[in-house]
């Protein structure tokens, strides 16, 4: 927050330090939430350019980290919406080609009952990617960014009770998804 206030007051070097300190965090959040490797750097850059442009809006009553996460999440939601529109248009043109649906990669090894750690990771990540967007964001912020329910609620502009429910449903969906994958083997 101190750096952000310094930047608001006209200290350009404070913005540089903000970027340096947070670029890895934003990059990781975009990666796990969006899984858009080809655009990862571009989206990360756009997050910080928004921080730059929106600096006058920042209020010190909010944690800088949750403000930054919110900007990141909103941008990711926008990208996902655009992606869905493009995909819908593409499917219309191709007559709903099944190969474009989100299904497990058939070239990957099938799940086994005695899955090794790497296989479990792959299945878990695929399951996370199939979660509804808001559940995915909540689980990523909780699991990989160590945000409290209160901070997740602030980031997602919702209540802590809603966050509790989101995370619970996300975990139930992940559990069920993994069990389904094992049974289909």
């Amino acid at each position: 927050m101190r750096l952000m206030l310094a930047f608001q007051a006209g200290n350009a070097a404070a913005f540089d330090r903000l970027v340096e300190r947070n670029v890895k965090t934003v990059h990781a959040l975009v990666y796990r939430f969006l899984r858009e490797a080809s655009m990862l750097d571009d989206i990360t850059q756009e997050v910080f350019l928004r921080v730059y442009r929106y600096a006058p809006r920042y209020q010190p009553s909010a944690k800088f980290s949750t403000w930054l996460y919110r900007i990141t999440a909103n941008l990711c939601f926008n990208v996902m919406r655009s992606r869905k529109k493009r995909r819908a248009a593409s499917l219309d043109a191709m007559g709903d080609d099944d190969s474009h649906r989100e299904v497990p990669d058939p070239s990957q090894p099938s799940p086994q009952a005695d899955l090794d750690a790497e296989e479990r990771r792959r299945l878990a990540v695929e399951a996370v990617n199939r979660l509804p967007e808001n559940q995915r964001l909540a689980i990523v912020l909780n699991k990989f960014h160590d945000l409290s329910y209160e901070d997740i609620a602030e980031t997602m502009e919702t209540t802590t009770m809603a966050v509790k429910s989101l995370l619970s449903r996300a975990r139930a969906n992940l559990r069920d998804d993994l069990q389904r994958q094992l049974k289909t083997d």
């Binding site: 890895k24 990059h27 796990r32 750097d41 479990r120």
Partner: peptide, 11 residues
């Protein structure tokens, strides 16, 4: 535990 191993690439 399965998600623990989900690494993000470094920028």
């Amino acid at each position: 535990a399965a998600l623990d191993a989900w690494e993000a690439p470094a920028p």
